[in-house]
Write a protein that binds this DNA or RNA. Sequence first.
RNA 1: UCCUCGAUAGCUCAAUGGUGGAGCAACCGGCUGUUAACCGGUAGGUUGUAGGUUCGAGUCCUACUCGGGGAGCCA
Length: 465
Amino acid sequence: MQSVTVKEIFRETDRFLNQNIELSGWVRTVRSSKAFGFIEVNDGSFFENIQVVFEESLANFIEIGKLTISSALRVQGTLVSTPGAKQPFELKAEHIEVLSISAADYPLQKKRHTFEYLRTIAHLRPRTNTFAAVFRVRSVVAFAIHKFFQEKGYVYVHTPIITGSDAEGAGEMFKVTALDMEKPPRDDAGNVDFSKDFFGRETSLTVSGQLNVETYCMAFRNVYTFGPTFRAENSNTARHAAEFWMIEPEIAFAELKDNMNLAEEMMKYIIQYALDNAPEEMAFFNNFVDKGLFERLENILSSEFGHVTYTEAVDLLEKEKENTHFEYPVKWGIDLQTEHERYLTEKIFKKPVFVSDYPKDIKAFYMRLNDDAKTVAAMDLLVPGIGEIIGGSQREERLDILLTRMTDSGLDPEDYGWYLDLRRYGGVKHAGYGLGFERMIMYLTGMSNIRDVISFPRTANSCEF
RNA sequence: UCCUCGAUAGCUCAAUGGUGGAGCAACCGGCUGUUAACCGGUAGGUUGUAGGUUCGAGUCCUACUCGGGGAGCCA
């Protein structure tokens, strides 16, 4: 008698066919009649269920026929093939032990539920087909990302979650404090005295590991971070969360072009890895979540990403203006609106497209100033359906220009001494980008709301579970 | 934060300002190959919250809460 998983049975069927085996799992559905019945069991190891046949001869036949969904079982029996049936094989039970009976008010029914409802029972939703698929793909893709960078010799850097940098510039920050919020210590001017706080200064949760990881880039050459990120923006959209995961590679002796090449190679690697290593889950998404998914992903694997500069993009969009109505005007110097980005990637290019070399005034201080002195070596990767999935740039390595850019942006160079040191001690050209992990998962699965690709999403006005 | 739409049984949805229903789930029973199993029956409601208009409000009005879609911010 061997205890096996459903995954092993599906992957190595011949080894187990006509053998006596034992498995344990949870009831997904029971269909019973007078003298026999069927149970679909999912053991968590695999996306697919296994069908268990039970007959009158079982001592607890009546009890088995009345099992509620999500009850737990241990089944012993013979695996038999079922040619011509919907399932390839089934387990003919010789003994079924009931390990746990689920209460009758179990909220998940044998029917389709809306994603909105499932969000309210986020502790139970991984038991549904869709979320089982989402979170297995999420796990597989996290591994793929590490594998991609590790195979290239990149060093994985854990940048801090708590930061003292009060102006990373990427968004509103959550404050971290150990002070008594009821009556915090105050200075002579009546302001909260953070010198009395745990760290002796004002601190926040990180909005990006980039500035920190640049320091390791100047030591290890090629590095990446992969960790949680926090933004206290009051964003209410399907693609923003207050807590999300981000991948930030940083490469030395490299320019913007190298950065874009890396991003394209990484995207393709991840897609291929997911298709190869979660085929059942990906097929499910293609069949039930997004009918055009495979076509889209395969189109990406086999084509070069588009490249366009911001200036060219503005020209293209201005030409389209005659045929299309944009709610917001397109004009050089103004950041592209979502509708413009979507038009570029969905209508003009019909594939992922890098937009590069944005006007310096709409981008961050650390992005490298181009020779025209008007634009910076920044790049966004836009993908159909999601919009911006990657944002990156070549970093300004020239100390004098960086200082000017900081001052112009209203930042105090005093606060960035360690960052400026990188330019003083062997600073070289380097570049990097941030990939929103959840946006990648959305793109890969066709799921359209970020709340449905994070186990327990944290968004404005919502921190359940 | 702004615009817009919505909230009715456990779930998905009906109900002209005039007695709140259906399908599924639950429960009881039937059925010898089901696979969103099928067939019959039973039970299930302070119509999101708080006010208001009206003889009468699920339906009209106001505020709030939560959710969907769109926008801003961005990954």
